[in-house]
Design a binder for these strands. Structure first.
Lengths: 407, 407
DNA sequence: TCTATTTGTTGTCTAGGGCAACATAATGCA
DNA sequence: TGCATTATGTTGCCCTAGACAACAAATAGA
């Protein structure tokens, strides 16, 4: 029904001129097609409530700029003249980068959300920032050289397993990598000649879920992700990513919920991340390593009382955290990803009961708790999304690059 | 329900036409003058980045509608032709209603933020909703009859010490009054013939602080209020009130931060509200009743070890809650109101240290913790703000009423 | 008094969305 | 098969609202 994450125009406090109007409407149309991959022009007119002729004009401009494609032969859906389908041009691409503890993944992702090419390189343990930047630049260059000549490059979006100042493109405290303050965005930009956007991995995954996953159609989402390194999160408020002043918002894993002295990865005691750990589950199940599906299966199969107790404890704690989020954000949906979805599968009834018990009457009623949808490509798609953000916000003003023009 | 403060244009997902443009710019100008009480036309042009002639035109339309006033004799500020001052017309009024446990306050508040008239009636303990509505209607009517004939009435804004569905104007769970689900907005509207907006008291106070108090100039605010009935809160994200799906968001007091079994007013254990209580302070200080200033003085004067310990415990818990908020919202400022500001005064150093200790590196750095500013009129001003919201959002389309036309 | 500076005012220009009329392409029924 | 119906695309014109430029007005300072 409602479309989400549509472009908020510029939610700033300056006056708007006719140009802003045009930018907004172009942005709106492009964003709508982007989210739905393909739409008819009449759908666009209906959803935007703009005049047919206006939509035609907007679509024409976006097509001219190479952002949209119109099908020649429209297929009929019912009575009346069939409408042309408009789809996003997947030749408009962004480079999505995922930095993890010991590897880097880079992908070219089309505006239609399709992964066009993907490479991966192992960085080794605790690599230096400049080494990682080098590897990223190499991977980007090699993918770039293989792109279609007509491609248009929007930029690079990078997912970071730690804190990021999104305003300045600076890293802070990536404990998993042992990095302190690093000017990552400008470093990557210098080596590639492309604009770079950074984002926290939780935030980025949340965006991906909103646009293409279990969060579609929702405007108020709490997303909690459990990975090997800890628990991250992201929050969508009124269709918009919650960023905070510097982009540090959404650290749901470091929410303190207990008097326990056990510390999380950031050294904070009694937090959700400190108490609900993937490792503990693996230990109890005598698993060395497992992906989330294997973990879920192992949990469901296990007859061990110890495992049972552990899971109940973790579920109860997760329930408390969810309740806190519900009281604070009054969201439409809470999405659980990573091993937290294994906990959901283990005993969703208990989890929901616990979450409800801690929520206030009003807020908890309509809340839906769900598993996230997107799998391995999640972060890459999300990273591409933040790279596309500028283009989507101002389709006419955003400068796209060719695959050839290096630097 | 509606937005207050600066009008973020319509952050909606439909296309914009020229009319929307006009609405936005009118809204912007009116909101700016409203926030600053008085501004010169050149200031307006500078701040909105609109053309001088456009600002003139907008101001002229708003003046014609009786919303703004222009001074005849501009006073010079420097070189150049002096600019006309534009101020908000305080004859445009809203009725602000504050419902508390045993009394109702109603005020007429001008668009300039001045309280024009104010009445109060004691309701007795646990009055029925319809009784309270009756009292409100009477107070509104009596104030209304005394208003200047040229007044323009925007509507009624009501502050509720409990949960409110702002979308539907329905109350839920006002434990302090023993009320369940009540269609309060339509009840009041039926008796007064005026549009009614409801808001949670925490939310409303937060809005008032943002617009006229310690939150001026900030876009990301966490507000925590400690009253006799418990702890409420409000959050401003990117200049906008955090509302959630149904308007239940911002219940910071019910955030669970401990394993303690002590329950808060909603029956939730281990929450901030359960553990940090005004009552406990009064008890320890052997005070029967005291306002916040008296409380602060008593705290600072007290030499009792028991009091000292209690305060330290409360401060530490409040610090944890603040840290959680900082990690979740990455705000620019955290405002403490009510008896929480007494705790701040008691030992701000300890409180800040505790809050910092629980915050993540990035988010905690620039956070400022402050006492809220506005006093007794806070809630009334805030309630008026939510009544003005519709007018500020669409100055040309909003229907104002005369004092005479009853019903 | 004259100049520089800033602001207000007026008339004109123009971009861009609305609208109506018409063209087009499908369905459905006689 | 032909014609009515319906939904969509296209075209030309209109209108509004903001920009802009030129000029007037009001101040300070020399």
């Amino acid at each position: 029904m409602n479309e989400i994450a549509l472009p908020t125009l510029r939610a700033n406090r300056v006056g708007s001129s006719r140009e802003d109007l045009r930018i907004h409407n172009l942005s709106l149309v492009l964003s709508l097609v982007h989210k739905n991959v393909s739409l008819s022009r009449s759908d666009l007119a209906a959803q935007t409530r703009l005049n047919r002729s206006t939509v035609s004009d907007l679509v024409a401009e976006l097509s001219e700029r190479g952002l949209l494609l119109e099908t020649e032969r429209p297929q009929a859906t019912g009575v009346g003249r069939p409408s042309h389908m408009v789809s996003v041009n997947n030749r408009v691409v962004a480079f999505a980068v995922e930095i993890t503890t010991y590897a880097v993944r880079v992908a070219a992702v089309g505006l239609a959300g399709k992964v066009i090419d993907r490479r991966r390189a192992v960085t080794g343990l605790l690599p230096s920032p400049s080494r990682v930047v080098e590897i990223i630049a190499e991977l980007v260059a090699s993918i770039r050289s293989g792109l279609d000549k007509n491609s248009l490059i929007a930029g690079i979006g990078v997912s970071i397993p730690g804190q990021v100042n999104e305003q300045t493109g600076t890293l802070r405290m990536v404990t998993m990598l042992g990095w302190g303050e690093v000017e990552l965005a400008s470093m990557i930009s210098a080596k590639t000649g492309l604009p770079v956007s950074l984002g926290n991995d939780g935030t980025i995954s949340c965006v991906a879920e909103r646009d293409f996953g279990a969060g579609r159609g929702f405007n108020d989402i709490v997303y909690i992700f459990g990975g090997a390194g800890g628990i991250g999160g992201g929050v969508i408020v009124g269709g918009q990513m919650l960023r905070g002043t510097a982009g540090f918002a959404g650290e749901l894993g470091h929410m303190r919920i207990s008097d326990s002295k056990i510390e999380d990865s950031a050294g904070l005691p009694g937090t959700l991340e400190a108490l609900v750990k993937r490792e503990d589950l693996l230990d109890a199940l005598h698993l060395d390593d497992a992906d989330d599906d294997e973990l879920t299966r192992a949990i469901l199969k296990s007859k061990s009382l110890r495992v049972r107790k552990l899971i109940e404890r973790q579920i109860d704690l997760l329930g408390i955290a969810i309740a806190n989020c519900v009281n604070i954000f009054n969201p439409e949906v809470v999405l659980l990803a990573g091993f937290l979805s294994s906990l959901f599968d283990a005993d969703d009834y208990r989890l929901l009961a616990k979450a409800r018990a801690g929520g206030l009457a009003g807020a908890r009623e309509r809340v839906v708790v769900r598993k996230a949808e997107l799998g391995a490509n999640l972060v890459l798609v999300g990273a591409a999304e933040i790279a596309f953000a500028g283009l989507l916000a101002d389709p006419a003003g955003f400068k796209l690059r060719s695959p050839k023009s290096i630097k």
